[in-house]
């Protein structure tokens, strides 16, 4: 495989959301990881953005589901 050109900060930053979401190709994922290994500024940015995403995910999944929903759906399906 040909050696890939390392990413600069701008190129790595542009891929940060996709990197956090693991939506990059394996090669690009590797390139971003290699940049984060050597760039403290981008690493701090990555940790910052990932913490926000993780925080939102955690809170979103804690939202209460009303207890009556299940029974209500059962009744609706019974008469469907």
């Amino acid at each position: 495989m040909p050696e890939m050109k390392p990413l600069n900060c701008e190129e790595a930053f542009a891929r940060l959301d996709d990197f956090i979401d693991r939506e990059l190709s394996p090669v690009e994922q590797q390139l971003v990881q290699e940049h984060l290994n050597v760039c403290a500024h981008c690493l701090a940015e990555y940790k910052f953005e990932a913490a926000i995403v993780d925080g939102i995910k955690e809170k979103m999944r804690k939202m209460q589901v009303p207890q009556e929903l299940s029974a209500r759906l059962g009744r609706a399906l019974d008469s469907a």
Binding site: K47, F48, E49, A51, I52, D54, G55, I56, E58, K59
Partner: peptide, 9 residues
């Protein structure tokens, strides 16, 4: 602590 984590908490 990561300030983003502090904010989200």
């Amino acid at each position: 602590q990561n300030p983003a984590s502090v904010l989200m908490n």
